[in-house]
Nucleic acid binder design. Structure first.
Length: 598
RNA sequence: GGUCCGGUAGCUCAGUUGGAUAGAGCAUCAGCCUUCUAAGCUGAGGGUCAUUGGUUCGAAUCCAAUCCGGAUCACCA
């Protein structure tokens, strides 16, 4: 149990003992870290009980403080009441006990298995263009959330639903057919996803030119938009695809294959993985029988032209179409089917969708419909909604070529980390291969941290003109603190990976800078829980940065190798090993690696 | 228009779910390398927490209204 949890428990027991029959429970006790300007470690807020017990804050604080400090085996050594706040000092032996119990352990925040099966669907790209900067936020979030949920005891399935069919795919195919002269990734010496993406852009160029021509010939723009030959070709191709036309299917398989090869390279570089791939070409026909059942149950209704709808007006939403008049599916129909498919495939307790907030309404409707249909998968659906990444000029538009490409961005970040490492003159003692790995760690770490450090809900603006910083609130800062610790351990001949805490009894007090670090270290488990409960990996970024900051301040005032005494040296080694392990553990959940030297 | 999300320092963001004098980073300015890595540390300046009212011992946080920005509400995906 965490220390704040214990304090709540002990304090509520004390209050029950002092004031029997008042029914004070741990959850009613508010415990905060004591502000630095007061003495003490944790603070119990007295106000909620002042009214209840009809006592003055000072009187209540004194009695509660006396009791807590006087208790047998108390973890508190002193108390102080300041205007309604009871500041409690935790004993050094308690802190030492925490350190010796935790330092060197493999699992810093052990969790019992919840027995829950949780799917996290993320990435879910279209196969008509390469990944861009916006996808990266999705991918990092999804991966991190999967790891966090694993670390908190869940059985996690990472899934990717590939959008591999539809009119947008046909557009790239048509443009390729018309203009590529049989170009392949090999012949063009370009990644497959980029090659296909180029023809998607090409399609739009041709389309625009054709529309312009038709308008010049006197056609109205709206009509020209539908009549442009290349658009008609794309639609015709989609019909052929659905009919299973062998030539179209062959080209489709070939071009998608190029894209998958390209994606694989990107995913590998991003350091993410998937346990299950779904393809829309397999799932796009699902959902119809669910609609049929809904009709039988009377949850859905048919309009005169045969289209099927659900009435969500009672829930403050609209009527929503589920099947067209001609009996064909719309987008949400296949999502209903896929939700059920996922549930049946893995017996899911929870199904998380990492999708941008522009689909909030869609996801709300999806869940609501499944609930109304009485599908067992419904209640486990959770939309992890995140704000879109925008440019200073607005949204990224692949058709207008304003996207920041994911591969380019990764390359740029690695280049930047190389440049800054060389500038700082920190390349000595590394082999070429080690340097390459270091630049990769720093560059990719900075990129991931940059996209994960903000609350997912909030949209973010990225200015490509400003490079991502390697100073301040960054992964680099955390990596640097970690490398510094490793450097000390090397010097002291202490094993980083097989550390065994030495038995230690303290004869001197724990210093403030030491205490602040220990306090923060003790909070790791609750931060991890909060990240899982709130579906918010940015909490781990904030926490890790804060921890690294505390370490740097500590490092500045206390020497390890030249510690005042042997016991101080042992204590500080324990502290810094645990700090390094905690940083590594937290960053690992975000897919960020920490070098031992930089 | 309906629904949802957001508005905190010049910029980018935290704010432990209602607690003490609202905090970081960047940028600006002033200091700190003979000492375990200066990608660091210490300090300074910088705030009408969008606005107004309410709830109470106490509000950036909860409620109401208003203003501003965004998303969404297709027989599109």
């Amino acid at each position: 149990m965490t220390l704040t949890g214990r304090i709540k428990e002990v304090a509520s027991q004390a209050l029950q003992h002092l004031f029997p029959g008042t029914g004070i429970e741990p959850s009613m006790v508010s415990v905060n870290q004591t502000k630095p300007e007061f003495s003490g470690d944790y603070t119990v807020v007295l106000f909620p009980f002042v009214k209840l017990l009809k006592l003055k804050p000072d009187e209540l604080g004194r009695r509660l403080g006396e009791h807590l400090v006087g208790m047998e085996g108390s973890i508190f050594t002193a108390y102080q009441v300041v205007s309604g706040f009871l500041n409690l000092s935790v004993s050094d032996s308690e802190w030492l006990f925490f350190l010796s119990r935790t330092a060197g352990r493999d699992d810093l925040a052990p969790h019992a298995a919840t027995g829950k099966k949780v799917m996290v669907e993320y990435s879910s790209p279209n196969t008509n263009k390469p990944l861009h900067f916006g996808h990266l936020r999705n991918i990092f979030l999804g991966y991190a959330m999967g790891e966090v949920l694993k670390a908190t005891g869940n059985d996690v399935v990472k899934a990717n639903l590939i959008n591999d069919r539809g009119i947008h795919i046909c557009k790239s195919m048509i443009a390729w057919q018309r203009t590529a002269n049989g170009a392949t990734p090999e012949s063009a010496e370009i990644k497959g996803d980029h090659l296909v993406g180029d023809y998607y852009v090409r399609f739009n160029d041709i389309y625009k030119a054709e529309v312009k021509e038709l308008v010049a010939a006197g056609m109205e723009e709206a009509v020209a938009g539908k009549e442009a030959p290349i658009m008609k070709d794309a639609q015709e191709m989609l019909v052929k695809w659905e009919a299973g036309d062998p030539d179209v299917r062959e080209l489709w398989r070939r071009m998608n294959g190029w894209v998958y090869e390209g994606f694989e390279v990107s995913y590998k570089k991003l350091g993410v993985d998937f346990d299950k791939m779904y393809y829309e070409s397999d799932t796009y026909l699902l959902g119809k029988e669910i609609v049929e059942r809904g009709l039988e149950k009377g949850v859905l209704f048919k309009k005169e032209n045969g289209s099927v709808w659900i009435d969500l007006t009672a829930d403050g939403l609209d009527e929503k179409l589920l099947l067209r008049g001609d009996g064909t599916s719309v987008y949400i129909t296949q999502d209903l089917g896929t939700a059920v498919l996922k549930y049946n495939d893995f017996k899911l307790d929870q199904s998380i969708y990492v999708i941008a907030d522009e689909q909030n309404y869609h996801m709300q409707v999806l869940k609501l419909i499944l609930q109304k249909l009485g599908e067992p998968c419904a209640d486990g659906i959770f939309h992890l909604s995140y704000g879109m990444v925008e440019l200073p000029t607005g949204k990224m538009k692949s058709r207008e070529g304003t996207v920041v490409d994911a591969d380019d961005m990764m390359e740029e970040m690695v280049r930047l980390s190389k440049e800054q490492t060389e500038q700082a003159g920190k390349t000595e003692g590394f082999t070429e291969a080690e340097l390459a790995e270091l630049y990769e760690m720093i560059g990719m770490g900075a990129l991931k941290f940059y996209l994960l450090r903000v609350d997912p809900k909030k949209k973010m603006i990225f200015d490509p003109k400003e490079s991502i910083d390697l100073h301040g609130f960054t992964a680099t800062f955390i990596q640097y603190a970690h490398a510094r610790i490793c450097s000390i351990l090397r010097k002291e001949g202490v094993s980083y990976n097989d550390y065994q805490p030495a038995p230690l009894t303290l004869t001197s007090e724990i210093a403030p800078a030491e205490k602040r670090l220990i306090l923060a270290l003790e909070q790791y488990a609750s931060v991890l829980d909060a990240a899982a409960d709130e579906y918010n990996p940015s909490l781990l970024c904030n926490y890790s940065f804060h921890l690294a900051q505390l370490f740097n301040s500590f490092y500045d005032v206390h020497s390890i190798s030249k510690a005042e005494s042997e016991e101080k040296k042992l204590l500080r080694l324990m502290i810094i090993v645990l700090t390094a392990h905690t940083l590594r553990s937290a960053m690992q959940l975000l897919g960020i690696r920490l070098p031992e030297k930089m």
